[in-house]
Design a protein around this nucleic acid. Structure first.
Length: 349
DNA sequence: AAGGCCCGCAACCGCCACACC
DNA sequence: CGGTGTGGCGGTTGCGGGCCT
């Protein structure tokens, strides 16, 4: 087996010795790699060209950044992965000095587990759904996870037989204003100086019910309300949720955080429409968005009322996503870090 | 101390896209 | 236009070190 370039040769396999590394470095720094298939012969190595290339790119390159990933890098990986999926090479481009292999390994060994522990599907970044107890009503399929900052998480499975409480915040700020609409303030995280030649509208994600839950002081115990919800499957939410998401609109990637105002949190209300306002902060235009959540396991349909036009998009995972644009639109983590992270759900006092 | 197990990471494998002939 | 070689990428494997019993 093996690659075409090394099928005829007797090649070494396995870990590289320091001597082999030295030969490869010496050859490439003096001659460049040129055609990789000729590198082994020219460098005096009994390796296949492909192996040489991999060793250089992933390990020997002088511009590599070694060591553990910073929190900022981790955040960047999660955020970009949310949009691009397992496109490790593309993700690595946003992390200077990191290789696709490194990012992939870090994802598989670390981030993946963290997301699962947070109740998130590492593939979709959506809330994990409990498929094991698929009974007649939809509500038994849903797990709602509530997060507050990064220090604690508690998960409520609305089967009510599985309530795991890891920690509960000791107190909650008071909320005075009770309004019924949801307002999302979107800020562009990348504003290219281009004309809108090819308007796109792509949600990278929507996550309705993963949010910070802030109970009013009048509510003696937030946990009680959560457990009410868990047991009944329905609860008039006496809380204000921070919600964040991002999407692409008119070739601009927008990141939004906002308040999902008190509403009915009810897993059986799937199919009902939920209105939200998208407010463009740089400019005067507003884009009202109607978001319709369809049944489980079906596509979500989003209607965008853009000015006087209505654009309708149907999404199946990220299949309609403008990958090419994303590659150019996403910025390195140093610049990216000054916007609120999509997952950063902090107490809003 | 030794054996088993787990896990991170380097390396490999297989596939695809593209260039060239 | 098809065959071949090469680069690139994502998925997977397996080595080896650390930890536990």
């Amino acid at each position: 087996m093996g690659h075409h370039c090394c099928s005829k040769q007797k090649v070494r396999r396995g870990l590289w010795s320091p001597e082999e590394d030295e030969k490869l470095i010496r050859h490439i720094t003096t001659h460049g790699h040129g055609c990789w298939s000729s590198v082994p012969k020219l460098a005096g190595l009994q390796r296949c060209g492909k192996s040489c290339r991999l060793r250089w790119i992933n390990y020997l390159r002088p511009d590599l950044r070694r060591g553990s990933f910073s929190e900022q890098e981790e955040r960047t990986i999660i955020d970009v992965h949310r949009i691009l999926g397992n496109r490790w090479a593309q993700i690595a481009k946003h992390l200077p000095g990191r290789t696709d292999n490194e990012v992939k390994n870090f994802w598989n060994s670390c981030i993946k587990k963290k997301l699962i522990a947070q109740g998130l599907d590492p593939n979709t970044h959506n809330l994990l759904k409990n498929k094991s107890n698929n009974t007649s009503t939809k509500k038994t399929n849903n797990i709602y996870s509530y997060h507050h900052d990064s220090t604690s998480t508690f998960t409520i499975d609305n089967n009510s037989t599985n309530k795991e409480v890891i920690s509960i915040p000791p107190s909650f700020p008071h909320i005075d204003n009770i309004i019924t609409s949801s307002t999302y303030n979107y800020t562009p995280i990348f504003v290219p100086n281009i004309e809108y030649q090819n308007p796109t509208f792509s949600w990278s994600e929507q996550r309705n019910y993963q949010s910070t839950v802030i109970a009013p002081q009048s509510q003696t115990n937030a946990l009680d309300s959560m457990l009410d919800f868990a047991s009944s499957g329905s609860l008039m939410e006496s809380a204000t949720n921070n919600v964040s998401s991002s999407y692409i609109y008119e070739n601009i990637m927008w990141h939004g955080t906002g308040l999902h105002e008190p509403t009915t949190l009810n897993p059986v209300n799937i199919g009902q429409e939920e209105e939200m306002q998208v407010v463009q902060l740089q400019g005067d235009q507003q884009f009202p968005v109607t978001q319709t959540k369809c049944c489980d396991d079906q596509e979500d349909v989003y209607k965008v009322n853009d000015h006087d036009q209505t654009v309708e998009n149907t999404f199946d995972d990220s299949s309609n996503f403008d990958f090419e644009f994303m590659d150019s639109a996403l910025v390195p983590c140093e610049l990216y870090a000054n916007v609120n992270s999509m997952d950063q759900l902090s107490w809003d006092c």
